[in-house]
Amino acid sequence: MKITARTVRTIIIYAAMTLLGILMLYPLMWMFFSSFKTNQEIFGGVGLLPKEPVWDTYKNGWKGTGQITYLMFFKNTFLLVMPTVLFTVFSSAIVAYGFARFKFRLKKPLFILMISTLMLPNAILIIPRYLLFNKLGWLNTYLPFIMPAAFACYPFFIYMMIQFFRGLPRDFDEAATIDGCNTFQVFMKILLPLCKPALFSAAIFQFIWTWNDFFNSLIYVNSVKKFPIVLALRMSLDATSASNWNQVLAMSVLSLLPGTILFFAAQKYFVEGVTSAGVKG
């Protein structure tokens, strides 16, 4: 085989890409393996794999504060995340349906308004929202996450679904209308099943963002009993005596697990979601 400049170039590219890949994954692998290390090794060793693996870090870390275990924190997180995701997807879809399939006089200005709220920084809303939720008695519940989701306050997803609806031919709607469906039935029976990919992407992104949302949790939730996992982790970081850092790492690994599983199970939707509308992350 003749070694041409082209093959050399290809080899260099593969080598560089592999090196970058290792660099990208190394921190995550280190975290995973370190959750089985002794504390001395976490702060001393240079190897990736644990020398004398400790198997009970997950079991002990799971105990949490003693009174409240990670079972509770995980349950809380699901109670916070699941309704938020479901409401986000449904409300965004219904609003997108309105924008994509109906003509009304204020459509264009309202659409532009909706898009421009994409740029509205959370930092400016969070204090008055806190005061509002305080008045409504919603602090220390998950309503500050669920209610904005129910009222379609996620323009990113609305926009994503409008784009998707626009790609669906109107013939479907018309055929269903002739068959006697009203507009809501057209939405529920015809369009919603067709836009499953968009619904999935939205659900996955919202799941992961809400799951990892630290800032809002920190502000709206303040009793340990109601803590989602992000707050529990941060608390463990403050409270940890020098002896159980491996448990902190173990629980950190667990907290990343649902997102990771979702990513590998639904990779297709991830890429579609990112490219169809947007950017965040």
Binding site: M24, N212, V230, L233, L256
Partner: peptide, 15 residues
């Protein structure tokens, strides 16, 4: 892409 899925998560900050 993998590191991006964790965003501003606390676990990543701890790491």
């Amino acid at each position: 892409y993998i590191p991006s899925i964790f965003g501003g998560s606390v676990a990543i900050s701890i790491l």
